[in-house]
Design a protein around this nucleic acid. Structure first.
Length: 438
RNA sequence: GGACAGGUGCCCGAGCGGUUAAAGGGGACGGACUGUAAAUCCGUUGGCUUUGCCUACGUUGGUUCAAAUCCAACCCUGUCCA
């Protein structure tokens, strides 16, 4: 027990990224990550630096399969893998097909519902698509790998696992780790299945070390405890030295969690969030975040970013447009990103109708049957219920073809269909959907 | 297993027999102001075929003209004891 807490303190002591100054870094990898603001904490920066300088890093990031797409919260670690690969090292994207069956308590207030195995598999397939856009996969030395921890976790035998892995863990110490401690302090439940998550993630790291020579785990700062636990387990189970590198958890300058809105998370997959909406998300970045986001979420050269970040007042909108297009090009495609930029320009700057706004098709008969205006907004997905539509009418938030709506009993008519064959519905000034009768 | 404290709307949290679709705060959405920013101010924040109806305060029953509020059992959480 004493020996354990001692090694942990040592690890933590050397952890602060400030311990190694930028000028000392030999590797492009750490230099780029540092100047772009990716680094929160690392376990042994000079050790990582040495490996990176000779292209010797094999680094993994684990992703939960709790949804059919990752959202922008995961993008920062994906970008870390991008730079890792771009500087001659090997990334591994680990799908948590096994660990998601257990559930990570880190940074969460309360336990999530346990997901069905079919859901997890479906989610896994959705998540995979985004990696293909940002990383190069294959069999080469620096080609990315994608593996699923269900491969080794699912067949585990409980007794063997306890004897081989469980014996290296001190419950005393596990209880002091943030993920468990926060639950205990807030008097919130921490179930045994979640408590075990830490062991499984630690074991993942050891398994990846053995299978692929993986020697670095990256993740959000909330993963620090899980990562160093894996390092510790590796030492006890005889792996080569393992390292940890975490990035800051993103919040906006006003302190809100990044990528969560009432209308839903900012998904990376186009199936969950249209390219136009994804572009808009970045376009609406707060002034104070523009520089930071350009460094984290685009691959523009630093001097270009410095120029854009220096813009003041209304001019910073130009920087936001660049940010939106670049960030969207990475995750969707450049063509689609530029189309979204053009749509936005027509809609916001020229006040003209952009026909490639998100479009919903409705049966033309609905119009002839006098589709209620409230129902039309619900159909378009701009509001959740007729009641909400009513309230928005009262508050002046709904417009049809850019005309504010005042009568909630109004019906859509043939004459509302414009020359482009669509009716433009708007919620507020920013959200627009086209209804196309077919 | 025992004692005690709890389980309220997206979240936190007040209410403790009728005036409660439920105070207050946060978040979110809309309006004003702007630069598709932030800050600020204002409004809204269960559903519907909306002068009304339906659903909702852990679950199921009960008492009562009337229950989120009282009673019973059960489920769940926490603290302490075994």
């Amino acid at each position: 027990m004493d020996a354990q807490s001692f090694t942990l303190k040592l690890t933590r002591g050397a952890a602060n990224c400030g311990a190694v100054s930028m000028t000392m870094q030999k590797s492009d990898f750490l230099r780029i990550l540092t100047e772009r603001g990716f680094i929160h904490q690392g376990s042994d920066m000079s050790g990582i630096d040495d490996l990176a300088a000779k292209g010797g890093l094999v680094a993994y990031v684990g992703y939960d399969c709790t949804a059919p797409s990752l959202h922008v919260g995961s993008l920062i670690s994906i970008m870390m893998m991008h730079w890792l690969q771009a500087t001659g090292n090997k990334p591994i994207a680990l799908m948590g097909g096994g660990t998601t069956r257990v559930g990570d308590p880190s940074g969460k207030d309360e336990s999530r519902a346990i997901r069905s195995i079919e859901d997890i598999e479906a989610n896994k397939n959705g998540i995979k698509t985004v990696f293909a856009k940002i990383l190069k996969f294959g069999d080469g030395k620096t080609d990315a790998l994608m593996v699923d921890n269900a491969e080794w976790l699912a067949p585990l035998n409980y007794i063997d696992f306890l004897r081989d892995v469980g014996r290296h863990f001190s419950v005393n110490r596990m209880l002091t780790m943030d993920s468990a401690r926060m639950r205990l302090e807030r008097e919130q439940e921490l179930s045994f299945i979640e408590f075990n998550y830490m062991l499984l993630q630690a074991y993942d790291y050891v398994e990846l070390s053995r299978r692929y020579g993986c020697n670095l785990q990256m993740g959000g700062s909330d993963q620090w405890g899980n990562i160093v636990t894996g390092i510790d387990l590796g030492r006890r189970m005889g792996t080569p030295q393992l390292y940890a590198l975490t990035c800051p958890l993103l919040t906006t300058a006003s302190g809100a969690k990044m990528g969560k809105t009432a209308s839903g998370a900012i998904w990376l997959n186009e199936a969950q969030l249209s390219t136009y909406d994804y572009w808009q998300f970045w376009r609406n970045t707060e002034d104070a975040d523009v520089g930071r986001f350009l460094r984290l979420f685009t691959t523009l050269p630093m001097d270009e970013i410095a120029r854009l970040s220096a813009l003041q007042g209304a001019e910073i909108n130009e920087a936001k447009k660049v940010l939106a297009t670049e960030a969207t090009a990475l995750v969707h495609s450049r063509e689609k990103a530029e189309a979204a930029a053009l749509t936005a320009q027509k809609t916001f700057e020229q006040g003209s109708l952009a026909t490639d706004l998100p479009t919903i098709e409705i049966p033309a008969a609905d119009i002839d049957n006098e589709l209620g205006v409230l129902a039309a907004f619900v159909t378009a997905g701009l509001v959740k219920s007729n009641g909400e539509a009513r309230r928005q009418v009262a508050g002046g938030g709904l417009r049809i073809n850019d005309q504010p709506m005042t009568d909630e009993k109004a019906k859509l008519r043939r004459s509302d269909v414009g020359p482009d064959g669509v009716i433009k519905l708007s919620l507020g000034k920013k959200k627009h959907v086209l209804l196309r009768p077919v």
